[in-house]
Structure formats: C-alpha cells, structure tokens
Lab assay of single mutants.
Amino acid sequence: MQIFVKTLTGKTITSEVEPSDTIENVKAKIQDKEGIPPDQQRLIFAGKQLEDGRTLSDYNIQKESTLHLVLR
C-alpha cells in the first residue's frame, strides 16, 4: 500500500509499505529516498509519535495515510 510522509519543508515523500511493516522499516525506506538517518527521524501520526518496534497496523495506519516527519 502507499503512504505519504510529509516533511517540515512541505515536501511529500510517497512510500510503498505493508501494514505489517515496522516503523523502523518505514524509517529505513525514508533513509533510502532522502538520506536521512533513522535515528534523526521522528514520525508522527494523528498527533502521536510512532515507536520503532510497532507496526503500521498497530497504529491503524491505512493506505494513503499521511505521516509527518520531524527531524531531531
């Protein structure tokens, strides 16, 4: 499924993921596309910071959901 990751600069990254993918996994995909190390990434969805060990389905993230990427 496709999800969108919006950066603070307003850029939107499209990523191909599975509901069973972990947040860590998603951060790795963002690193592949943007070159941002996962340890600098914080992903936010519905006002919550997403934890690395959890999966997209844990957070009820569905296709075409938009996550927000904040850098630390």
Rank of each mutant, 00 (worst) to 15 (best):
Q49Y: 14
I13Q: 02
F45G: 02
V26G: 00
S57Y: 10
K63C: 07
N25V: 14
E24T: 08
I13T: 03
E34G: 07
E51M: 10
D58I: 02
S65L: 03
L69C: 02
I36T: 07
K27N: 01
R42E: 13
P38H: 12
V17G: 02
L50M: 07
E34D: 06
Q2G: 06
K11L: 10
T55D: 02
T12W: 10
D58T: 04
D32I: 13
S65K: 04
T14N: 06
F4S: 06
Q2A: 08
K27S: 02
G10W: 03
D21P: 00
I3Y: 00
G47P: 01
I3Q: 01
I36K: 03
Q2W: 11
M1P: 03
S20K: 08
L67K: 00
A28H: 11
E18C: 11
I30F: 03
L67I: 13
P37I: 05
I44N: 05
I13F: 12
K33M: 13
Q62T: 13
Q49G: 07
P19G: 07
E16I: 14
R54H: 11
N60P: 03
V17P: 01
P38D: 04
I13E: 02
T14Y: 09
V70P: 01
T14F: 09
D32L: 13
Q31N: 10
Y59K: 00
D21N: 06
I61Q: 00
L8Q: 14
K27M: 11
E51S: 07
V26L: 14
K33Q: 13
G47V: 02
V70N: 05
G47F: 04
F45V: 03
G10I: 02
I23D: 00
I13S: 02
S20L: 08
F45L: 05
T55W: 03
D39E: 13
E51L: 09
E18D: 12
A28M: 14
A28S: 11
P37Y: 05
V26W: 00
Q2E: 09
L43R: 00
K48A: 09
D58F: 13
S65T: 08
L50V: 03
E64I: 02
P37W: 06
Y59V: 02
K63V: 07
S57Q: 12
T12H: 05
G35D: 05
H68E: 11
I3L: 05
A28F: 12
V26Q: 01
K33E: 09
L67V: 08
F4T: 07
G10E: 03
E64H: 14
T9W: 15
L8M: 13
Q31Y: 15
T55S: 08
Q31T: 10
N25W: 10
K63T: 13
I61C: 00
D32N: 10
T22G: 03
D21L: 05
Y59D: 01
T9V: 08
Q41G: 05
Q2C: 10
Q41A: 06
G47I: 01
R42T: 15
D52M: 05
P19E: 07
S57I: 08
L8T: 14
T14R: 10
M1D: 03
Q62G: 13
V17T: 03
F4G: 02
R42G: 07
E24C: 09
E18Y: 15
N60E: 07
Q49N: 12
T14S: 10
G35L: 05
I3P: 00
F45A: 02
L67E: 00
D21W: 13
S65N: 09
P37G: 05
D21S: 08
Q62W: 06
T55C: 04
T9N: 13
H68L: 15
T12Q: 06
S15H: 13
Q40G: 06
V5I: 15
E24N: 08
K29M: 14
K29W: 13
E18F: 14
K27H: 02
K48R: 11
K6S: 06
L8W: 15
V26K: 00
L67Y: 00
E64N: 15
E64A: 09
K6G: 03
D52Y: 04
I13A: 02
S15A: 15
T9E: 12
E18M: 13
P19Y: 07
T12D: 03
D21K: 01
P37M: 07
P19N: 05
A46W: 10
E34I: 15
G47Y: 04
V26P: 01
I30C: 00
E16L: 14
S15V: 15
I23R: 00
T7E: 03
Q2K: 14
K29I: 12
L56N: 01
K6V: 14
E64P: 04
I36Y: 13
G53T: 10
T66M: 09
G35E: 04
D21R: 02
D21V: 03
I30Y: 02
I30D: 00
T66W: 07
Q49H: 12
F4K: 08
I30M: 03
K27P: 01
D39K: 10
I23N: 00
L71P: 09
I3A: 01
I3R: 00
L67G: 00
T22H: 04
T22M: 07
K48D: 06
Q49T: 14
N60I: 03
N60R: 07
L56Q: 00
L8P: 15
K6Y: 06
Q40H: 12
F4W: 06
T12C: 12
T55R: 10
A46H: 13
I44R: 05
N25D: 12
M1I: 11
A46L: 11
K48N: 10
Q62C: 05
L56P: 00
L71E: 08
R42F: 13
I44P: 00
D39T: 10
I61L: 03
R42S: 11
A28K: 15
F45S: 03
Q49C: 14
Q2T: 15
F45I: 03
A46N: 15
T55I: 06
V5Y: 03
L69D: 01
E16M: 13
Q2R: 15
E64V: 03
Y59L: 05
R54G: 06
E16T: 13
N60L: 06
L50C: 02
N60Q: 08
I44G: 02
R72L: 14
T12R: 07
Q49A: 12
K11W: 09
Y59F: 04
A28D: 06
S57F: 10
T22L: 11
I61P: 01
I36A: 04
R54K: 13
D58W: 12
